[in-house]
Amino acid sequence: MSDPTGERPASNGYHKGPLLLRRGQVPVTTTDQRLLARGGGDADWVHADPWRVLRIQSEFVEGFGALAEVGPAVSVFGSARTKPDAPDYRRGVDVGRGLAEAGFAVITGGGPGIMEAANRGASEAGGLSIGLGIELPFEQGMNQWVDLGVHFRYFFARKTMFVKYAQGFVVLPGGFGTFDELFESLTLVQTHKVTEFPIVLVGTAYWQGLIDWLRGPVLEAGTISATDLDLIHLVDDPAEAVRIVCERDAELRAEEEAAVAENAAAEQAAARASRRDSFRP
């Protein structure tokens, strides 16, 4: 993310797949930008785009391979611009620590600000701290608290990893990137594309205006249902955010165990019935 002052921030290097680039080697466009460009008046894109599919495929394969065995995890979203002396940074550390102590790996975008805070809290608590980096024009690199880092060229591949390996989402104050991740998570849960994982917003002063807008004009226009708002939990205390995630995880585990037991009972009943039928003359 670029610095809000317009100046180029200090960088740990620009990652382009497995490559590390610095100074004059940093490209002025990103892989996402080139993918989405129409290509002007020539037809070179007809030949180039099919090959991009292989690169996209490799991102999914590498991401799945790196994260398949992380165990229970929670994705934490928030601004890259939050300074270490800000209250929200402290909340991020507390969220990461609380999740790690509860047995969850912590997944962030791997950058500075809130992402660094959550990774730091998880790492200091002895938990697994994961960073999913993204290719950006002025990249600041993975923060030092990431234990397992994966770099992506494409936002959509990275966002899949945020969702696929998470049992919940905790969202601290952030900007457009955070809003994108928040509403993608809400959409996936609302449409039942993923299990109804908890989505917790931390920071009433920051998020209350959004909630009021959803409960007001959006709900009144009929573009969402009142029950959709139940998907969002708004808290100030990091410990409360962790508690909500833990309680919902326990509920989901109980539901899964009940479903497994029910299926096993049905299979046993079917087997007994089959054996009875085999002895009939």
Results as ranks from 00 to 15, higher is better:
residue 163 V to N: 06
residue 114 I to Y: 13
residue 136 L to I: 15
residue 147 D to M: 14
residue 117 A to M: 12
residue 169 F to A: 12
residue 165 Y to R: 11
residue 134 I to E: 02
residue 173 P to E: 08
residue 179 F to I: 05
residue 122 A to W: 09
residue 165 Y to A: 04
residue 169 F to Q: 11
residue 155 F to V: 10
residue 151 H to V: 02
residue 150 V to H: 02
residue 165 Y to V: 12
residue 174 G to Y: 08
residue 185 S to N: 12
residue 137 P to F: 13
residue 165 Y to S: 05
residue 136 L to Y: 04
residue 160 T to L: 15
residue 126 G to V: 08
residue 147 D to P: 00
residue 153 R to S: 12
residue 115 M to F: 01
residue 112 P to W: 07
residue 117 A to S: 08
residue 133 G to E: 01
residue 159 K to Q: 12
residue 159 K to H: 10
residue 167 Q to H: 14
residue 163 V to I: 15
residue 118 A to S: 12
residue 139 E to G: 06
residue 114 I to Q: 09
residue 128 L to Q: 01
residue 149 G to V: 04
residue 170 V to T: 03
residue 168 G to A: 12
residue 155 F to K: 10
residue 144 Q to S: 14
residue 169 F to C: 10
residue 159 K to T: 04
residue 150 V to Q: 14
residue 116 E to C: 12
residue 155 F to E: 04
residue 116 E to A: 14
residue 145 W to M: 06
residue 156 F to G: 11
residue 117 A to C: 10
residue 183 F to S: 11
residue 138 F to A: 13
residue 130 I to Q: 07
residue 119 N to Y: 06
residue 178 T to W: 11
residue 153 R to L: 13
residue 124 E to K: 14
residue 178 T to S: 10
residue 134 I to S: 10
residue 150 V to P: 06
residue 129 S to H: 09
residue 182 L to Q: 06
residue 124 E to Q: 14
residue 136 L to M: 13
residue 116 E to D: 13
